[in-house]
Design a protein around this nucleic acid. Sequence first.
DNA 1: ATACTTGCAAATGATTTGCCAGTGT
DNA 2: ACACTGGCAAATCATTTGCAAGTAT
Lengths: 150, 150
Amino acid sequence: MTVRTAGRPATAAATLHALINTVRAHGLRVSTARRVVLEALVAAQRPLTADEIAAARLDLGSVYRNLETLESIGVVHHVHLGHAAGRYELTGRTAGWATCQACGRSTPLDAEAVTAIAAVVRAATGFAPSFTHFPIVGRCPDCTLERSLA
Amino acid sequence: MTVRTAGRPATAAATLHALINTVRAHGLRVSTARRVVLEALVAAQRPLTADEIAAARLDLGSVYRNLETLESIGVVHHVHLGHAAGRYELTGRTAGWATCQACGRSTPLDAEAVTAIAAVVRAATGFAPSFTHFPIVGRCPDCTLERSLA
DNA sequence: ATACTTGCAAATGATTTGCCAGTGT
DNA sequence: ACACTGGCAAATCATTTGCAAGTAT
């Protein structure tokens, strides 16, 4: 049996309620820890590390297990913004990421940019790329300018 | 004075020699371990893990230290092809990498493809991208076909 | 002779896992 | 009640680092 929720978890507007419905629809329980993880991700302004999500209230191991479970049902995914710990966010919050190898800052990509880039990547390589798991890595505008001035 | 070993491919020998010259030019010593690391990378048909380079002949810690030193003088760099251990290769061997998130295989990119993609990325985002440290991640042609047939 | 390097081992940091008590349904 | 979960601790994996002995120059 499939339970269809009102909205897609595709925008920042994906409410905690909708996410919890999805969890239930997959036959999973809504435990306190699971709810806390979801609340943290809903409130976050950027992808969070497991450590940030645990934040003294939850066991790190439980957080990782929950994130894995939530990834398996598609409501959460993680991104590697550089060499640091992986970061988790609600699915659909961004179209992709770009990280500067010089200053380390990361920026979300808008859908149009990703669409344009994906078309060229596909034409040039045959790959249908995604920049939500590994970002586009390079020099950001600021750091590119710096280098050209040096 | 140069001693040429019979049977060794001239290109590989020339490359190793040039690499060793670069090491010396930076005031670094050419120790046995350092030479073994370089030889392994020259002979490799694909990027190697530190573990593969160590291969029972060298200490893993020394391999990592050597790779770090060789990266600092620009003759080596590493790439993250998925969640596994980092892989090291000689600088300039490839223009970039693409990794399939479905089958896990990685493919080197040719310079023209990278140039075309970089132009679009720069136009759409302002970033000057590089795909030698983090690959383009997506579905390869085979796995994209599979999905479309499913 | 004098640094630079190595091997060995212990330390880190991130993530995973075994176990058993606790709790959501 | 019963299976799913949580907390705690130990285990992995990849990589880094302290240190005393070894060696390239």
